[in-house]
Design a binder for these strands. Structure first.
Lengths: 111, 111
DNA sequence: TAGATAGTTAAGCAATTGCTTAAATCTCTG
DNA sequence: CAGAGATTTAAGCAATTGCTTAACTATCTA
């Protein structure tokens, strides 16, 4: 029951590389589906489906403009990811500190 | 072919909430499987499988200690996630700026 | 109004996921 | 050495995923 579907869950939504690439592309600004789909070797419906998943995760919003549909980036839910990862920053900092200490030490014993 | 399997891909690895919870738990320090599995209503093999996925994503490392196996957090691959999300920070900052500007404006027209 | 354009919906399919239970494996202890 | 403890491996299963093609819907344009 509680298995998170790709819709509505940000972490699931960004798990797919195509979806991340779409978001990356949207940083350039609002775009219609066809233009958005251009670099991908994938059918249009596939892209459309990805967009729907991004949409229901709140990462993207849609607006009709004549016969095209403009998609726009909404980065806000990514804060959830950012916050989660941020907890780990001190840990990898610690790791890197350990590494540099090790290198330092090695350097000293080189003399 | 290029569909990223949960193994080896960090974004896939952290897509699962149980896996994130395991990582969260490992922040408290190295732990054997049984202890790690304690809060989850899930069979031990299930946890073991999650640990393997985390392992092959490089997020966790394993060390034998008698008949138990100690798992230890390795946060370094999370930098990949951190870096990716960081690109979006200016965007949501912008969003929030717009919001606060809006609120400001509304506040002014309240007078 | 007939077509072309932009996009979605629907149906179907193979692969993957997340779990389960049962059977190993390895290691410690009496 | 026999059993208990800790964990993994194996096999199997239902649900989900990521895609495809074919058929629709809506909108613009000649």
């Amino acid at each position: 029951m509680s298995r998170p579907t790709a819709s509505a869950d940000v972490f699931q939504a960004i798990a797919d590389p195509t979806r991340r690439a779409i978001l990356d592309r949207l940083r350039a600004g609002e775009q219609p589906v066809k233009q958005l789909a251009e670099p991908f070797e994938m059918s249009l419906p596939a892209i459309s489906q990805h967009l729907q998943i991004l949409c229901s995760a709140g990462l993207v919003s849609q607006q009709k403009a004549g016969r095209q549909r403009l998609y726009r980036l909404n980065p806000v839910p990514l804060q959830q990811v950012s916050q989660w990862v941020a907890y780990y920053e001190p840990f990898w900092q610690q790791k890197l500190d350990a590494l540099s200490a090790y290198l330092e030490e090695n350097h000293e014993s080189d003399r």
